[in-house]
Every structure is written in structure tokens, then in C-alpha cells.
């Protein structure tokens, strides 16, 4: 399990430390930068498509989605991020947002002005490597989500999403394992699960029911238990190799 960092920037440092070896003075510099944060409720847009941010957000606690809204008003969630993530770091290099970042839960967000982030990256090049690695990880996850949309059935893609989130949460120390079972919180509504898997509410309802009836997933509101992760992974065609950048080193 990843070592835990304390203080307001704890989750951010915990995640960065998995992506790269952080020197101690970088940790203290980052603590100072995100010393002030904002508490946002659920369904709050942190940045919107078309925005030109002058700062990067750091998700200190809570969940957000990247999403796009089609012309007919239908929303597609293109990725999910939890504590420690910096989902709009790309705004450093790509000035205009091409998607929205929206909170899914109550969220604690820190903001680091671009000029601070740039000078930090100049002082600590290891930070550039960490964000590069994070970008590659995001691309790898996006490729799997593409396969979900194009090449997996409704039940398989739902199961794949659960395997992915369970694995990432466990590596981050946010899932409890007993034997081959994993218990974790995934605070998404059924509609949001559908938006992340490209399924209508009717089909996500049926898929979740199939997974519950088969005994592969137990659900109590937003708490889920995967009873046998290797078995669900085999069913969902889930191989965690694409997530390895996020796996804590032993």
C-alpha cells in the first residue's frame, strides 16, 4: 500500500509519490501551495469547456468526472478521478478546455496558479516526469474505455469499470481486501454509471442487476463488494497492466 502523507496536500503527495520519487523539499513546497482549498458540493463545474484556466485544480478529497455534453444534451463521462488527482494539468500547455470537469460528490479542491506550477516544475524536473507519466496513464485508461464502448457488452463494460475502480482504489489504500474480495465506495448514481459506460439508464439498471444476481457484486448504496476480483476480471476481460503507473512500489 502507498505510504500516507499528512496535511492538506496529503492525497496529492501520496499520488505524486507513486508516479515519481519526490524529494522532501518538493513535498513541503507543495504543502505551501495548496494550503488554501475550497469545499465544493456535488455537481459543481470546476472548469467548463471553452474556459482558459490560469490555475490547475488538485482534488484533495472527493470525486470528479471529466465530461462532455453532446448537442442533444446527453452527457458522456470520459474519465473518473478521485483524491490526489490533477485532472486539468493539461491547461498548462493546452490553453482552452475542450471538456468540463464536474464534482460528483462533496469535494475539497486546491488550486495552484500556473506560474507557481511552472516554477515548481523548473525547480523539480521530477515533477514533469510525474505529470508525463500521469498523462500516459490517462491515455491507457482512455484506450480501455474506448474498448468498453466499442467491443464489450453492457454487462462486461459495467464489470470492467468496477474492476478498474476497485484496483485503483485498493492501490491508493481506499479499498478493503479480505481474501479475493474487495470492498470500496464508488459514489456514482446509476445514471452516472450509465454516462461512464455509454449505457441508457434502462440498460445500466439491468446490467447492475445481472452482476448482483450472479453474486459477483454486492451493493449497499454506494458501497460495493466484489466477491471474487479475479473471477470478475476474467469475465470483464480486465487486465490491470495498463494501470501499472499508479501501482505503489514495494
Amino acid at each position: 500500500m502507498a505510504p500516507h502523507f499528512n496535511g492538506p496536500a496529503g492525497t496529492f503527495l501520496q499520488r505524486l509519490n507513486v508516479l515519481a520519487d519526490l524529494p522532501a523539499d518538493l513535498s513541503s513546497a507543495i504543502h505551501d501551495l495548496v494550503a488554501t482549498s475550497r469545499s465544493l458540493g456535488a455537481n459543481h463545474d470546476i472548469v467548463l469547456q471553452g474556459d482558459q484556466p490560469s490555475q490547475c485544480c488538485v482534488i484533495l478529497e472527493g470525486w470528479v468526472s471529466r465530461n462532455k455534453v453532446g448537442a442533444a444534451g446527453k452527457r458522456q463521462i470520459t474519465s473518473l478521478h478521485f483524491s490526489g488527482a490533477t485532472p486539468d494539468i493539461q491547461s498548462l500547455l493546452h490553453p482552452v478546455m475542450d471538456h468540463n470537469i464536474t464534482t460528483l460528490t462533496n469535494t475539497e479542491v486546491g488550486f495552484i496558479p500556473h506560474f507557481h506550477m511552472r516554477s515548481l516544475m523548473e525547480r523539480f524536473p521530477v515533477l514533469k516526469e510525474a505529470f508525463w507519466k500521469d498523462t500516459l496513464l490517462e491515455l491507457a485508461i482512455a484506450r480501455e474505455w474506448e474498448v468498453n464502448l466499442g467491443a464489450r457488452s453492457a454487462v462486461e463494460r459495467t464489470a470492467h469499470l468496477f474492476c478498474e475502480m476497485a484496483t485503483r482504489l485498493e492501490w491508493f489504500g481506499r479499498a478493503t481486501r479480505s481474501g479475493s474480495a474487495l470492498r470500496f465506495e464508488l459514489p456514482l448514481t446509476q445514471i452516472q454509471l450509465g454516462e461512464a459506460t455509454g449505457l441508457s439508464s434502462v440498460h445500466i439498471n439491468r446490467s447492475m442487476r445481472t452482476l448482483r444476481n450472479s453474486g459477483m457484486i454486492e451493493q449497499s448504496r454506494h458501497w460495493f463488494t466484489i466477491s471474487d476480483l479475479p473471477k470478475l476480471a476474467a469475465f470483464a476481460d480486465f487486465n490491470p497492466d495498463y494501470l501499472l503507473a499508479e501501482r505503489p512500489r514495494d
Binding site: K74, V202, N205
Partner: peptide, 29 residues
Amino acid sequence: LVLLADDVHGSSRGLWSVEVDFRFVLANS
């Protein structure tokens, strides 16, 4: 069309849902 009957659909039970639409295969209805 399919008549939603399963209890997983909650308050949408009793409504008609477009199961397959031959022209707009992936659109939400």
C-alpha cells in the same frame, strides 16, 4: 419498444422504452 416491468427500474416501471431504434442505433431515448 419494451414495457419496463423489472423492479430495478423503480419509478420508470410501466413506461415504454425504446429497446432498438433501427435508424438511431446509439442515441438515448
